[in-house]
Design a protein around this nucleic acid. Structure first.
Ligand code: NAD
Ligand code: NAD
Lengths: 205, 205
DNA sequence: TAAAATATGTGAAAAAATTCACAAGCGATG
DNA sequence: CATCGCTTGTGAATTTTTTCACATATTTTA
């Protein structure tokens, strides 16, 4: 059995993927770990170590084939295989995310959006018909949704998370600034934008 | 001179701050590192190690005073001292961020918002008058803005970042999915939401 | 075709972050 | 006021991540 892949490696793989697409657009067909690393201010050895988790992807003395590596990373990350997501809480952030093209580019498809506000339910928001919270469990099962993006106010998040866990969701991307308590079965990733900016400002001299 | 503080420690400090506020609301006056750690699924030793960077904040045998620790962390992070920020690119994401209350709670004040679309400039968006890009440098200096939140399309980001660097901005929170090339002087933090969700989905079995 | 130049893949070393484990301090109790 | 139970603060040990360094493979050059 292979060694388990560090989360940091997966994150960098996405950066490599982005850079390789950019290089392809430029018509560049081949690249060394050194040049690729240069595009994102990391070491060449880091690039090679990351890629080495997945086999012999390059050619000694010659570097990597850009197209081949891009497609290999796409396969590793499962970008070609579409995952269904839903967005819960169609406020300003939820609406922005619904409109975001970047998700589709990585193989995510928004299958449903939910809100509990009566003036939103039934209306189209960013091209998606806003569904009532009562229908959440049913629609998630029907549409085979694996990932939920949670953009409701902090005090509603935990309760909804529990419902999501019960109906078998696999992962939650949580934007509410609270720790969700769920079983280990559900993967939770927290995006805390206030934290991002505060961390940044801490290191300003 | 003190040892330099790990970035991860600063991030956790923010989580502690959030939890301590929550505990205060509940009327809880005292807490042990163990209970605090329990609120966010980390080890008690991690909490103590993090806090120990900043002196003797607790009392042996008795734990930490919630109010005192909250205020101490606020001081460490500089939450009470307001930092001025601007938002560049008032599309769906920029508008959502402009409306976000969480920034104010951590001591950030939105002083200006910018866009280059003629139908936006001059109009009020989320209560902020949208300013033209031509005025960016002048307003940033006038309003003493240290941090820019960059929410423009990817292909406009680098060019604007260079302008920001030139007019003395200290840090950029970048939402565009591109690597910004700037001198070391400007701190850049990238929030890549597509990457977040992809990383999450990678670890789903 | 031999030598030089390049560049990968990977163990080993180094650095960074986390966890352990315990001496030492505090408060309560009898 | 001695003892006991609890909890901090912190070096040491461990684990994880990054970097180094080089044997090995390929291409280029002459
Ligand atoms: N706006 C931002 O830029 C931003 C940034 C970071 C984090 N966040 C966080 O994201 C969350 C959403 O922020 P927002 O600015 O979009 O807020 P918002 O008030 O604009 O939107 C919240 C939406 O959730 C809906 N909602 C409320 N309770 C619900 C429930 N029980 N079930 C279903 N829907 C419910 C509301 O009707 C509303 O449409 C908040 O937790 C906020 O802290 C927002
Ligand atoms: N919408 C999202 O949820 C989301 C999520 C993650 C990342 N992003 C990224 O954030 C950025 C903004 O996304 P968005 O969805 O808000 O896009 P958007 O198109 O809604 O908004 C972009 C705004 O930037 C303005 N703009 C364009 N060029 C400009 C320039 N040169 N100077 C000043 N302003 C300019 C446009 O007028 C527009 O108002 C993009 O880079 C996107 O990839 C968006």
């Amino acid at each position: 059995m292979k060694k388990s892949i560090p989360k940091k490696t997966v994150q960098r793989l996405l950066l490599y993927y982005r850079s390789l697409n950019f290089l392809l657009q430029q018509g560049i067909k081949n690249i060394s770990s050194k040049s690729l690393a240069g595009l994102m201010e990391i070491r060449d050895s880091q690039v090679r170590k990351d890629l080495s988790y997945f086999g012999h992807l390059g050619k000694r003395g010659a570097g990597y084939d850009v197209l081949e590596l891009r497609d290999k990373i796409a396969r590793i990350l499962g970008i070609e295989q579409v995952k269904n997501v839903c967005i819960i809480g169609m406020g300003s952030l939820g609406s922005a995310l619904a409109a975001y093209k970047g998700f589709a580019a990585l193989g995510f498809k928004v299958r449903a959006v939910f809100d509990n506000a009566s003036h939103k339910v039934g209306r189209k928001i960013r091209g998606y018909e806003c569904r009532p919270m009562e229908a959440m469990e049913k629609i998630i099962r029907q549409e085979d949704i694996e990932i939920a993006v949670l953009t409701v106010p902090a005090d509603a998040a935990q309760e909804i998370a529990v419902r999501l866990e019960k109906c078998g969701i696999k992962a939650i991307l949580n934007f509410a600034p609270v720790k969700l308590s769920l079983s280990r079965r559900v993967k939770v990733s927290n995006v805390d934008l206030a934290m991002e900016i505060k961390t940044l400002s801490f290191f300003i001299k």
